[in-house]
Nucleic acid binder design. Structure first.
Lengths: 218, 218
DNA sequence: TGTACATCAGTGAACGCGCGTTCACTGATGTAC
DNA sequence: TGTACATCAGTGAACGCGCGTTCACTGATGTAC
């Protein structure tokens, strides 16, 4: 049997996944502050110390959950783009991903913990996400003349590691991304509750407006 | 001496404010999960149980902090509007308010605690905030014809308790509000860190774009 | 102004709790020859 | 295929800790007459 597929290793990753699943459950139910290793262990059917075979500490577990969340979002967006979705399709994919597990969304885009610095690999996944976005926008024609902000984005392009992408495209990506999260974060945090309108329609309208603004004949 | 101004009452509110100030300090330094009553008491120069003369419980203290945050934002916006700020001025006022204490911002707009329901008075302040926004937008002429989403907002107008405001204005408020929070939450959570562009310029550009879209002669 | 009483801020000891984590161990699974 | 050894998942007892909170109290401040 190859090193990557021994029975022990398969078992390990199964248990590891189960632990994370229970952890996600707990976070979804009572928030991240209620995440307790002992409680998770009990749900998994294991004694508390047993968890330490899988995660070095509570922080370690949380970091893995954050990493998984990033990975999951990046994969969702990549898959969406690769199956032919345009920018609008991508927006809906992100929205569905977020709605599916709001606390997972907030694990990435919610309240930051002061002093916490994400490990290098999650910041890498985060740029991967932006890369998918840039790719999606690159398929669209660039409309309108450059603004002052576009010029400023020359430095941002260095970050993107892609010399060929026009500043106007980067500009549209950033604008799109922030607007997307504006609606999602307010909606998922419940700030529209009781306001008597459907956030889904606002979402759709904002998308339409975004594209209308870039129409050739405006 | 009148009932509202006895020395004892003045003292009480001073201590109460000091406690909250230390609590905010702790949250700003290490996040809300690190907020500990005993630690606060020590900073205030008081024994742990002493705090219970001022707050019934830890949750009570947090709720007050949230209420204060709402109140502070509403007052900031109201003051800004009353001193002649237009919609753009309002946006900058909110931005400055948020930048001044990001954790206070996230107390309102950050990760929600599942199952937590804000007390009635904070939801009232929250509508007060939207009312200021509506007032600011009401000073602007309504441009463009109604979209399908505008029609949907008839029910939202009931919520706003203002029959006279056009749906198109409500629409602009919601759009404006979500875009504002999109940039603020990503920026303050550090999601632009290292991306080599200035979030302030993105903010300014989004504002300019927002207004350009509504220009008469477009 | 003085005295008697009521209010209330703050203390110190004590509580039970559940947390994360360590340690020495048992027993099952895998590996080498 | 069988035996000897190594690996490693999981247990149970135990740890120290700091938490929120309670309680009976002391002493200072305010109120009434």
């Amino acid at each position: 049997m190859s090193a990557a597929g021994t029975a022990r290793e398969r078992y390990r990753s199964q248990v590891s996944e189960e632990i994370k699943a229970r952890a996600r459950e707990q976070i979804a139910t009572a928030g991240i502050s209620a995440l307790s290793l002992n409680a998770i262990a009990k749900h998994v059917g294991m004694s508390g110390p047993g968890l330490y075979r899988y995660f070095a500490s509570r922080d370690d577990l949380i970091t893995e959950l954050i990493r998984d969340a990033y990975r999951s979002l990046a994969d969702t967006m990549r898959a969406s783009l690769d199956t032919g979705a345009d920018v609008t399709g991508l927006a809906y994919a992100v929205r569905e991903w977020a709605a599916q597990d709001p606390q997972r969304y907030f694990l990435i885009y919610g309240t930051p913990v002061p002093g916490y610095h994400a490990p290098e690999d999650t910041t890498r996944i985060s740029s991967e996400i932006m890369a998918v976005l840039i790719e999606a926008f690159s398929a669209l024609p660039v409309e309108g003349q450059d603004t002052a902000f576009d010029a400023h984005l020359a430095s941002h392009r260095e970050w993107a590691y892609d010399d060929s992408v026009p500043e106007a495209t980067l500009h549209r990506c950033l604008s799109f991304w922030t607007r997307l999260h504006g609606i999602l974060s307010l909606e998922l945090a419940g700030h529209f509750t009781g306001m008597k309108f459907d956030p889904a329609l606002l979402f759709a309208d904002e998308l339409a407006t975004f594209h209308r603004a870039a129409e050739p004949g405006r």
